[in-house]
Simulated scan of single mutants.
Amino acid sequence: MAAASVETREKSELRIFENLDDLATDLAEYISQLSEISVRERGSFTIALSGGPLVGLIGKLCEAPYSMTVDWTRWYIFWTDERAVAKNHADSNYKTTKERFLSKVPILNSHVYSINDNVTVEDAAGEYEFAIRQLVKLRKLGVSESNDCPKFDLIILSMGPDGHVASLFPDHPALRVKDEWVTFITDSPEPPPERITFTLPVINSASNVAVVVTGEDKATAARAAVSGKCERTDCSSLFPARMVWPIDGTLAWFLDKPAASDLGNAEH
């Protein structure tokens, strides 16, 4: 059960949980409900995942009742960002997701879109964007009427202690990319340095965006991103999570108590 669930800023919901198990349970229900709605209305469910601890938190979906009730054959899986490493490398988001999630549910292999790990990071980003554009042409993936970007049913992000989401890091030029759906970086402040990432216009075009934040080391960034309280005038570039704001969609924050510890009375 959520420790608190309140509205915070327009079209944004804040959910705070006593522990990770409660957060994972609520997150699974949230994803399941969106999947059911999308499949019923459009015949498919397009979801983009981040790496890190997020994969472990969505593990509840592999258990009953979701393992039996979710229409897995209608799912299309993407990654908001990926490290430019081999698919069997320990740093690969695909490898982690495959081992901890994809191998446990009957999602069709042809519906899983991983990056090409045999080309340069620049070419990998270009190929990934091309694959997304093909799905748009096939009408498996919607398009935002506001900016012609792909409209994923759900994008799930995790946030780093520095406030980064996907592979969009504080004050990085990638934050300002407007004319591409997928871009690449070669200077990530966290290893490995080469990565591809969705751009902000794509993230903000999703029908639903969920940001999952856990751990006390994220408390300062969570305060700046969620509550809007920041003493600096350039907070958005310093905390990229503040720039996540769906144009025509909804935003849900999932925080555990330690991550929410610096929010003061924001959860009441």
Results as ranks from 00 to 15, higher is better:
residue 49 L to Q: 01
residue 53 P to A: 10
residue 18 E to Q: 14
residue 42 R to Q: 14
residue 43 G to R: 06
residue 37 I to T: 10
residue 99 E to L: 12
residue 16 I to L: 06
residue 28 A to K: 06
residue 58 I to C: 06
residue 51 G to A: 11
residue 97 T to L: 11
residue 34 L to H: 08
residue 62 C to P: 01
residue 83 R to L: 10
residue 64 A to Y: 09
residue 51 G to P: 03
residue 96 T to K: 14
residue 17 F to R: 04
residue 82 E to N: 04
residue 96 T to N: 11
residue 52 G to Q: 11
residue 65 P to R: 02
residue 48 A to R: 00
residue 86 A to V: 09
residue 70 V to N: 13
residue 21 D to M: 01
residue 76 Y to M: 04
residue 57 L to A: 14
residue 102 L to I: 09
residue 85 V to Y: 14
residue 72 W to V: 04
residue 87 K to V: 10
residue 56 G to I: 04
residue 63 E to Q: 15
residue 99 E to F: 04
residue 26 D to H: 15
residue 31 I to F: 04
residue 19 N to K: 06
residue 71 D to Y: 02
residue 49 L to I: 02
residue 91 D to C: 07
residue 101 F to K: 04
residue 74 R to F: 00
residue 94 Y to T: 01
residue 28 A to V: 05
residue 64 A to F: 15
residue 43 G to S: 07
residue 69 T to Q: 11
residue 25 T to E: 14
residue 54 L to C: 07
residue 61 L to N: 00
residue 25 T to D: 13
residue 52 G to N: 12
residue 29 E to C: 03
residue 90 A to H: 12
residue 40 R to K: 15
residue 37 I to V: 15
residue 76 Y to S: 05
residue 60 K to I: 00
residue 57 L to M: 14
residue 20 L to P: 03
residue 57 L to K: 05
residue 48 A to E: 02
residue 99 E to H: 10
residue 86 A to C: 12
residue 70 V to F: 06
residue 71 D to C: 09
residue 36 E to L: 05
